[in-house]
Design a protein around this nucleic acid. Structure first.
Lengths: 255, 255
DNA sequence: AAGGATATTCCGTAATAGGGAATGTTTTAT
DNA sequence: ATAAAACATTCCCTATTACGGAATATCCTT
């Protein structure tokens, strides 16, 4: 397609660099960012002022920080799609039923992104948050998505970028993963046994929409000691498939 | 301060215009955006490619749409602050207790922004979503925040921009509002009677942090016919103040 | 297979983004 | 209280680059 990287707007890349530098900070001064990125303070100031005008950056005194415009746009995208709104209520039900953490995940650019999360009574605290992203091949919902992706895209992910090793249990061999994905296509259930986080197990399934196009995936995750035996391999998968099915029916006929 | 509007990066303003044009659309082609904004297709293409490189825009075929990078950054900001994470669990409890819709709101740039929302069993469906923003003076949590803002900032909002009339009930007279805000400072409870949405009532209170600095506000909202009598004026305020108090204690001592 | 529409790339030029210096402003040290 | 240091902000010149128009490629329609 177009990956001709020469035809780009440099000043936007500068602005993005500034945004990225600002993100982890509570607040930063002009010089701090200028030094960090090795650009002139006057330049940083000009960019920050521009971003501030549009609420992408907030300012108190001479401390600059990212503003909530990002959440405004992100939240709007999360809310705009009927499918995502439906998914939200469904995973909340499932979190209540299972008492565990439940997430609704989509694929973008070959990676998984949490669009909604719901926590049940016993849900584990994780550092996962809305919008957080990671590779597909090491999570339950991610593998379920991967299994249902069109073959060329799937193969691109399997062979193209290399399957990053996240934990000792992460499956990094394309052949082993291919085999598992075939199994997932048959059962529509994917398991994650400490492949993304040590001590964490998860069960996932894919969600499809009107013309059977892939929407995303749902996963239920919890500590390995609780996610085991029949509860892990039978009960939760059954609840999960039930919810995914209801969701799919809602998507197909409710609007 | 610096509101010298001459010293800005024009190409970033172009990019922001493109982002804004893209936001409400499901997807758009290059020409569509170029026509709408009256700039050259080659320029639009260059901007979109740059944004796409950084996942602010996604592309399928020649349809461009906003990407989840906005949610990634927004979700990160929402999750980073300990106070906001605490608020999330607290409003979920309150939503369960009251069965209504509960929101955690902050102020930025003189406007309110929903940072977390929780829905109870009977919660009304609204178009409000995470990140949505609006004026402070017409909502319960907004008025609670306004009442607790430092005087100069409050006066700037009251007299500076003009109090927009959102519904027939919105209070737009600065003097009437000042009187109500004094009352709110005494009781720490704010009411909203169809001032932002016809048919919707809400109760709100402010949340303060370690050095009594203002963090945000919490509101409980529901249909007017259910939010009335003692439930509206006594029971819900009591529950709300209880939760706000717990939250403040958590913020002050738990970390 | 041809024609139309649109995406994408190329390229010259006018506009502007960038840096350094000048000017405020605030904080720190004495 | 004053001086000095540190930094934000503004100003201005110049090298860079963002822009638009033209050329080319690609896709779609008939």
């Amino acid at each position: 397609m177009n990956d001709n990287t020469s035809n780009r707007v440099k000043s936007i890349e500068t602005t993005i660099a500034i945004i990225e530098a600002l993100q982890p900070k509570e607040g930063a001064r002009v010089t701090e960012i200028a030094t960090e990125l090795d650009i002139a303070p006057s330049t940083v100031h000009r960019h920050l002022s521009t971003l501030h005008d549009h609420n992408f950056v907030k300012k108190s005194g001479d401390q600059y920080a990212l503003g909530m415009r990002f959440l405004s746009i992100g939240g709007y995208l999360q809310h705009k799609k009927f499918e995502y709104r439906m998914a939200k209520t469904k995973i909340e039900d499932l979190a209540m039923e299972t008492s565990e953490r439940v997430q609704f995940v989509i694929e973008e650019n070959g990676r998984r992104i949490y669009v909604h999360t719901a926590v049940g009574e016993n849900a584990v605290e994780t550092d996962s948050h809305i919008g957080k992203q990671g590779p597909l091949h090491c999570s339950a919902a991610g593998k379920a998505i991967l299994a249902n992706l069109p073959e060329p895209e799937r193969e691109e992910i399997l062979t193209g970028g290399g399957l990053e090793q996240i934990t000792p249990q992460t499956i990094t061999d394309p052949d082993m993963l291919r085999k598992e994905l075939t199994e997932i296509r048959n059962t529509q259930i994917a398991f994650n046994k400490e492949e993304s986080t040590p001590g964490l197990h998860a069960v996932g399934t894919a969600v499809t929409g009107k013309n059977d196009e892939l929407i995303g995936g749902i996963s239920v995750s919890g500590p390995a000691h609780r996610m085991m035996g029949d509860r892990f391999t039978k009960e939760i998968p059954k609840l999960l498939l039930g919810v995914a099915n209801e969701l799919e029916l809602n998507i197909k006929y409710n609007q």
